[in-house]
Design a protein around this nucleic acid. Structure first.
Length: 488
RNA sequence: GGCCCCAUCGUCUAUCGGUUAGGACACCAGGUUUUCAUCCUGGUAAGGGGGGUUCGACUCCCCCUGGGGUCACCA
C-alpha cells in the first residue's frame, strides 16, 4: 500500500510543540515507508482564525526541517500550494463539504436541525441539573419533509447533524490496539454549521478520503471522537484508514502541556536559542525510543529508526532540563558553519564585530552555552573590557606582586611576538607555556592573572582563547590596564 | 460524574515470562584543569496495591487505586 499521512493544523496561532511532534511522526512514518506527507490547513473555525498563522506555520516547518509533498507553500511572501489534491485549505473547499453533507441527508444518515443556540444551551443546562448526559434530544429529527423544505426556503438558520446509529463502534488503533466505544456516548454531531462551514469531523473525513490519506496519526485527545469518524466513513462507504493516537505531551504536573506552565510554541524555543535540530531530536524521543541507550539522532536517522508500534502509550512530561542538555550537545557538535548561521541573530552588541571575530567568539564560547541566546551576554566582554577590581587579578595561591611580575613579563612577551602568531591559537599557547616552563613557574601564577586581565572576569574561557579572539593589540591594552590597576 | 486511555528511578525510556531491572537527563562524589564550562570515572534512585495464570512474573488476565483525555454550530 502506498502510505500517505497528513498534518492538519488550524491556523489559530503558533506551532505547539505537541503539534510539532505530531507533524514529525507523520513525516517520519511517511518517509520510512516511502510514502507521501501532506499539510492541510483546517480553518473552518472563522472565529479563532489568526492572521499570518499559515505563513508562520510554513516557515516554522521549514526551519525545523520537516518537508511535505503536498500542501500550502510560500512563494516569496505569497501563499500558494503544491500537489494534485488541492485546494489544501478547507475554507476553499466549501462546495465539497456541502455536497457530501447533502448526500448524507438524502440517504438518511444526517438531518437538518433548526434549533437555536439558546434552546441547545437551555437543554444542556437542564440535563446538567438532572445529572443526565448532555446530548442533543433529536428535536429536529421528528420534523417532516414539508416543514423542512418550508423552513429551508424561508432561509431559516440551520445546521446538519449526523444521526448516530444505535450500537457500538470498534476500531483498531495502531498504538493501543482495539478500542470500543458505545454509540450512545456520542452526540448527534453537527456536520455543517449555520455559517455554511463544516465542522472538523465532516471536513477531516471528507478531506482525508479525497486526498488519499491512509494513516491518521494524531494526538490522544482525539480518541473519543474516532467513532464519529468511523460512522462517517461507513456512511460514505469510504475505505477505512488506519488510526494511531499518540500519547500526550505533559506539563510537569502531568496535565496536558499548556501555556501558563511554560512555553509551548516552537517559535518560542527557537527564539530562545534552541537549535531546530535539538528541538526535533528532543521532541521525537518524547514517546518513542528505538533502543533505549541512545539519545542523539539526526532527522534522517529518525526516519530510519521510526516504528509506529514502538510509540509509547503513556504521556510524556516535557522536561526542559533534558532539552537544555541536548541543546548543549548540539551546540558543541554541530557543523561550525551551520552553528554560525544559527547564532547570527544572537550576538547582541557584539554583532557589529567582523564575522571572522564572531566566528572565533562562537568557537570559544560554545563550550559553555546552553542556548544560543546566552551568547548575547557572553560576547559583551570581547567588545569592551568589563569593570573589575584589582584584587580579582590575584590568584588564590599568590599575591599582587607576583601577579604584577607575570603580567609585566607577559606584556613584553606579547609585544615582542610576531603578530602572525596571534592568528594561531596553538602558537599563542606554546609561547606562553614556554615562558612558564622555562622559568619553572606554576600555571596558576601566570594564567590566572592573564585570564582575568583579558576578560575582566573571574570566570571565563581560557587566556589562550581570549588572546586569540582579542588579538595582540587589544591584548596589550588590557594587560596594561591590569598592570595599572595593580600598581596604582 | 459518564465514557475512553494510561501506569518501570524525580524526568525521558529499555525490557516483548527466567536480567545483579539497562541507558540518558537531573542530583551527589571523585578526576582532568588557572577559573567557569566541557570532558572522564563512580554513586544515590524504579516495576502503585490486591488477586489469579505459571515451575517462574515488571512482563499475561481480573479488580482496586492513581493519573490523564473527552463529553461545543473549537480544532
Amino acid at each position: 500500500m502506498n502510505v500517505k499521512t497528513r498534518f492538519p493544523p488550524s491556523p489559530t496561532g503558533f506551532l505547539h510543540v505537541g503539534s510539532l511532534r505530531t507533524a514529525l511522526y507523520n513525516y517520519l512514518f511517511a518517509k520510512k515507508h516511502g510514502g507521501t506527507f501532506i499539510v492541510r490547513v483546517e480553518d473552518t473555525d472563522r472565529e479563532r482564525l489568526v492572521e499570518g498563522a499559515v505563513e508562520s506555520l510554513i516557515r516554522t516547518l521549514k526551519t525545523v526541517g520537516i518537508s511535505y509533498d503536498e500542501g500550502p507553500i510560500l512563494v516569496g511572501d505569497k501563499l500558494s500550494e503544491k500537489g494534485g489534491n488541492g485546494p489544501y485549505t478547507q475554507s476553499q473547499r466549501l462546495p465539497i463539504y456541502k455536497e457530501h453533507a447533502q448526500k448524507l441527508v438524502e440517504q438518511g444518515s444526517a438531518y437538518y436541525c433548526f434549533c437555536s443556540k439558546e434552546r441547545l444551551e437551555e437543554l444542556r443546562n437542564q440535563q446538567q441539573i438532572a445529572k443526565l448526559q448532555t446530548k442533543y434530544d433529536r428535536h429536529c429529527l421528528k420534523l417532516d419533509a414539508q416543514e423542512i423544505s418550508r423552513r429551508l426556503a424561508a432561509g431559516e438558520s440551520h445546521v446538519i447533524r449526523l444521526q448516530i446509529p444505535d450500537g457500538e463502534t470498534t476500531f483498531q488503533d495502531e498504538i493501543r490496539g482495539s478500542i470500543t466505544i458505545s454509540n450512545s456516548e456520542i452526540d448527534d454531531q453537527v456536520l455543517m454549521k449555520a455559517d455554511g462551514f463544516p465542522t472538523y469531523h465532516l471536513a477531516v473525513v471528507v478531506d482525508d478520503h479525497l486526498m488519499g490519506v491512509t494513516h491518521i496519526i494524531r494526538g490522544e485527545e482525539w480518541i473519543s471522537s474516532v467513532p464519529k469518524h468511523v460512522i462517517l466513513y461507513k456512511a460514505f462507504r469510504f475505505p477505512m484508514p488506519s488510526f494511531a493516537h499518540l500519547p500526550l505531551i505533559l506539563n510537569p504536573d502531568k496535565s496536558k502541556l499548556s501555556k501558563r506552565q511554560g512555553d509551548v510554541a516552537v517559535e518560542d524555543y527557537l527564539e530562545k536559542g534552541y537549535l531546530p535540530e535539538a528541538l526535533v531530536n528532543f521532541v521525537a524521543l518524547l514517546g518513542f525510543n528505538p533502543t533505549g541507550d541512545r539519545e542523539i539522532y539526526t532527522i534522517d536517522e529518525l526516519i530510519e529508526a521510526f516504528d509506529l508500534t514502538k510509540v509509547n502509550k503513556s504521556g510524556a512530561v516535557f522536561d526542559r532540563t533534558k532539552l537544555d542538555w541536548m541543546n548543549g550537545q548540539y551546540i558543541r557538535s554541530i557543523d561550525s558553519k551551520r552553528l554560525f548561521e544559527l547564532a547570527q541573530p544572537c550576538f547582541g552588541d557584539a554583532s557589529t564585530l567582523p564575522d571572522e571575530q564572531k566566528k572565533k567568539i562562537l568557537g570559544v564560547e560554545k563550550e559553555r552555552l546552553v542556548t544560543l541566546k546566552e551568547l548575547e551576554e557572553r560576547a559583551k566582554m570581547y567588545l569592551a573590557l568589563p569593570e573589575y577590581p584589582a584584587t580579582d587579578l590575584v590568584w588564590k595561591k599568590a599575591d599582587a606582586q607576583d601577579a604584577t611580575l607575570h603580567l609585566t613579563n607577559l606584556l613584553k612577551l606579547v609585544e615582542s611576538t610576531e603578530p602572525a602568531v596571534f592568528d594561531r591559537r596553538e602558537l599563542i599557547e606554546e609561547a606562553i607555556k614556554k615562558y612558564i616552563g622555562d622559568n619553572g613557574y606554576q600555571n596558576g601564577n601566570v594564567l590566572w592573572p592573564l585570564r582575568v586581565a583579558l576578560s575582566g572576569q573571574t570566570q571565563s574561557s581560557g587566556p589562550f582563547d581570549l588572546l586569540w579572539v582579542l588579538g595582540a593589540h587589544e591584548g596589550i591594552q588590557r594587560i596594561t590596564i591590569a598592570i595599572d590597576k595593580l600598581t596604582s
